[in-house]
Design a protein around this nucleic acid. Structure first.
Lengths: 157, 157
DNA sequence: AAGAAATAGTCAATCAAGTTGACTATAATA
DNA sequence: TATTATAGTCAACTTGATTGACTATTTCTT
């Protein structure tokens, strides 16, 4: 087994750098496609609004932020044309946040780019190593979160 | 080769989650040791202030933020007793930011905790897998940054 | 050596993304 | 039915960043 030169960086720094590399590449490419007004924070929100839409409370729980913060983000994304507020079908207090056509375009573009990034990693380190990498990271995330994947899918500092 | 169940998370999400797991654990444990006033942003700065101290400009470049932002962070860390501003030995405009005794205690505690986290990962996935994981992440970070490790060691969104 | 340009740092104002607290309207429960 | 809980918004504040303006030095160009 040959061991190539590996930097002196600790694992946490490596994770930080590789995460920010990925997220930066994603948003640079989204920007080139005309989705420059979506910032990383918004990406996580769009991801959570599925076919049926989502309520503000659901988004807040998913993102791990307050409903007030969600409300402001929705203001921004609505103004930018990515989402719309619709009446909740059964609860007159509530609102459904749904993707607009442009919102769907952005989500699909994001998925495509992430897929391409992953494909490039496969070219780079091979499918087996990528698979191992994902397995190991999954294990470690689960271990750090009392045996289950966290429900909040956003970096929480 | 057996492939265990792996979540449907994409790589970028996994990196995000594993990074925030690590950084959260680090700061929870720092907090228990009485370093609760150090937030993740500050950790990166302390790391950069080595034996000889550093100038504000050096810190700004290292962290990828403006010198004004550094100045404010130094205000905070000075007030909290982790660093001190000293005269620059040759440049009367400049100041050297140096660690106080408490600053060194925090840095050493941080290194110890990161080391322990890494040890636990070795127990969890084995030394070989951890080595591979680090090699792969290093490769990918280098590939994403025009062939070299980035000089900025902080997540940039 | 003198004058011009660059640099290190700070101050002030602003922005972005979050927070807490107060409020309205509706829904659920006792 | 009266009370309590919930969904969402508004307003004020906090934190960590930004840009722009300024001072004091240093370095570069004649």
């Amino acid at each position: 087994m040959t061991h190539e030169v590996v930097s002196e960086l600790n694992l946490t720094s490596l994770l930080s750098l590789s995460f920010s590399s990925s997220i930066n590449e994603l948003h640079e490419r989204l920007s080139e496609l005309g989705f420059g007004d979506i910032r990383p924070v918004h990406g996580y929100m769009l991801k959570c609004i599925t076919l049926n839409g989502a309520t503000g409370i659901e988004l807040a729980e998913f993102l791990g932020i307050t409903k007030q913060a969600v409300s402001k983000m929705v203001d921004y994304l609505e103004k930018s044309g990515y989402v719309m507020r619709d009446n909740h079908p059964t609860d007159k207090r509530g609102k459904m946040i749904i993707l607009t056509e442009r919102g769907w375009l952005a989500v699909r573009a994001k998925e495509k780019i992430l897929h391409e990034i992953e494909e490039r990693w496969i070219k780079n380190i091979g499918a087996e190593r990528l698979q191992m990498l994902k397995e190991d990271l999954t294990k470690l995330v689960i271990e750090a979160n009392e045996g289950k994947l966290p429900t909040t899918v956003r970096p929480v500092w």
